[in-house]
Design a protein around this nucleic acid. Structure first.
Length: 569
RNA sequence: CGGGAUGUGGCGCAGCUUGGUAGCGCGCAUGGUUCGGGACCAUGAGGUCGCAGGUUCGAAUCCUGUCAUCCCGACCA
């Protein structure tokens, strides 16, 4: 491809709206342009990268025996109403009506649709198992689209759905996907964690997320260098030990604490540390008032709380509710004489001694409080976030926490959708059984962004060979030298004839501009045809290396092909 | 949805406090000189200053409303 003919523009300056490297570079390198918030158009270079990633995904999926189909992105409301998700998704779903006022949505995910396809075709155990997938555009009206393609409202997703006779079969289907995902992300040149994940609103049993370590990631990952344990913080269980175990239980005492409301103020007032306090937070969970108690310096884990209550709607209670259940101003809530539907105590609190709590009376706290003796909970459970340095749930060594980009997610769904939609089969005994389902997603655009996050420097992108839009870029140093142009065209044609994707920078620009653009768009191999062509030499340089080497023009084609093959092997 | 910020040629920005001809850098076009890490000179094209009202003789500038975009938070198969 001659760059003088290519639809392609780079930006010298970073658009002010882009904050993170992948977003900045995707715009600067001319991979894509924004159409609206969270909606992007892909230009030729960007489209080629998407295709590369899609092709890797397709190859690895096909290897597992999964079969590609293509469902519609425009979906009738009925199916969603059958499973109840028309309302569950709520405003996040792009909803629309046809000319006859029939309701539709743009598909945010496709469990319902694949299950519907399957229920119409599958009748017998003899037809199971199988796995169907598609690579298709999804629509989610995100509350806050962010970071370019990292969280967008329109995105390309590979979604796969497995259908099995039983749970053992699902385990096998799941393992195949797990391995395929590892192969996919390996081939994309990504370093990643496979973490235990919450099954969330999708329902189901086991779940793993594929997380690319990155400071710009939206998820927090707990990991253990000792034993290799890794989990989403949402999921990671806390291991609680007795705190201040040496203390003897002292007598409970009411203390006047005028205007002392926050944990910080309490620490000051009592001249002690946050682990001596227990805070009582009031939540509204599916309409019920719930008090949640945890150590002063801990954070509530909403996911754990949600799972505990099998809740769909959780929010912090408003000021009025707090004041009515506690009978005091905000800042003095405590478990004694509190008027809530449920009192939940974090497991850690049950391990504490002589702690300080609110008295449900404005201006007062209790100290030397002990769980069991002074109050009792309706539920004691693990409902907090694990923190750095706490014991690993698997081996007990101190854990670390880092941020990650979720590029893939796999679930054992079970029968949630097949039961709701009546997708059943007749088993060997003629008995009707629900099909057992798994679902498996990869965000294609987000994977591209994650690759850039992991492969760039201050000059631009550094594509892995497997996903680069072109393998090679030939820079003609001096366009006005016919000898250089001719030599460059010859190399270009020979490489192209041998199946190499090659760009020829024959633009009427100075060498510096071409070098800078080559670095920016991140082509892994650069050949420069310059002065030394008179000695029959061209320059070979890798984007990821600083130095370059001179190579006889007659050897360059083989050199390049060797290099590419070595890397793609 | 709560908080914060910003909208001025394709990109980056100034001008706004104190109303009066819309500016700079980059990019783009033409000509010339250059030519291995974002050249130089000359000439030129391109903007209803997000939109709608209002104040005023006069609004990019002041007021009101609205829309859009970005960031933080909440939320997120």
């Amino acid at each position: 491809m001659k760059m003088s003919e290519m639809f392609f523009t780079t930006l010298r300056e970073t658009p002010s709206e882009a904050e993170i490297p992948s977003h900045q570079l995707m715009l600067r390198a001319g991979l894509m342009r924004k159409l609206a918030s969270g909606i992007y158009n892909y230009l030729p270079l960007g489209k080629r990268v998407l295709k590369k990633v899609e092709e890797i995904v397709r190859e690895e999926m096909d290897k597992t025996g999964a079969q590609e189909i293509l469902a519609s992105a425009l979906l009738p409301a009925e199916l969603w109403k059958e499973t109840g998700r028309w309302n569950v998704f709520g405003p996040e779903m792009f909803k629309l009506k046809d000319r006859n006022e029939r309701e539709f949505c743009l598909g945010p995910t496709h469990e319902e649709i694949f299950t519907d396809i399957v229920r119409n075709e599958i009748k017998s155990y003899k037809q199971l198992p199988f796995n169907l997938y598609q690579i298709q555009t999804k629509y989610r009206d995100e509350k806050r689209p962010r970071f370019g393609v990292m969280r967008s409202r329109e995105f390309i997703m590979k979604d796969a759905y497995s259908f099995d006779k039983n749970w053992d079969g699902l385990d096998i289907s799941y393992k195949k996907m797990y391995d395929a995902y590892c192969a996919i992300f390996d081939r994309c040149g990504l370093k990643y964690w496979v973490v235990d994940a919450d099954t969330g609103a999708m329902g189901g049993k086991d779940s793993n997320e594929f997380m690319v370590p990155s400071d710009v990631g939206e998820a927090e990952v707990v990991y253990c260098d000792e034993c290799g344990y890794a989990a989403n913080v949402e999921k990671a269980p806390c291991v609680n030990r007795a705190i201040h175990a040496e203390d003897v239980e002292k007598e409970i005492k009411k203390v006047a604490t005028p205007d002392v409301k926050t944990v910080d103020e309490l620490m000051h007032f009592f001249n002690t540390t946050a682990d001596r306090f227990v805070k009582t937070l009031i939540y509204s969970i599916d309409g019920k008032a719930v008090a949640v108690m945890l150590r002063g310096d801990r954070e509530v884990n909403i996911t754990k709380l949600q799972n505990l209550f099998k809740a769909s709607d959780i929010e912090m209670a408003d000021r009025n509710t707090v004041e009515s259940v506690t009978g005091a101003e905000v800042g003095f809530a405590g478990p004694i004489n509190i008027n809530v539907d449920v009192l939940v105590v974090d497991d850690e609190v049950a391990h504490m001694k002589n702690f300080i709590i609110g008295a449900n009376e404005t201006g007062y706290h209790y100290e030397n409080v002990n769980y069991g003796r002074d109050f009792k909970a309706d539920v004691v459970a693990d409902i907090r976030n694990i923190e750095v340095g706490e014991p690993c749930p698997k081996c007990g060594k101190p854990i670390n926490i880092a941020r990650g980009i979720e590029v893939g997610h796999i679930f054992k769904l079970g029968t949630k959708y097949t039961e709701a939609l009546g997708a059943t089969y007749l088993d060997e005994n003629g008995q009707e059984q629900p099909i057992i389902m798994g679902c498996y997603g990869i965000g294609i655009n987000r994977t591209v962004a994650a690759i850039i996050e992991q492969h760039h420097d201050d000059r631009g992108i550094i594509w892995p060979m497997s996903v680069t839009p072109y393998h090679v870029i030939i820079v003609v140093a001096s366009n006005y030298q016919p000898e250089q142009i001719q030599a460059a065209e010859k190399i270009h044609d020979e490489l192209a004839a041998r199946g190499i994707e090659v760009l020829l920078d024959d633009r009427d620009e100075r060498a510096g501009v071409k070098f800078n653009d080559a670095d920016l768009i991140g082509i892994p191999i650069r050949i420069t045809v310059g002065k030394k062509i008179s000695d029959g030499m061209v320059e070979f340089k890798r984007r990821d290396k600083a130095e370059s080497i001179d190579i006889p023009i007659n050897d360059i084609v083989n050199k390049v092909i060797d290099e590419i093959n070595r890397e793609l092997a």
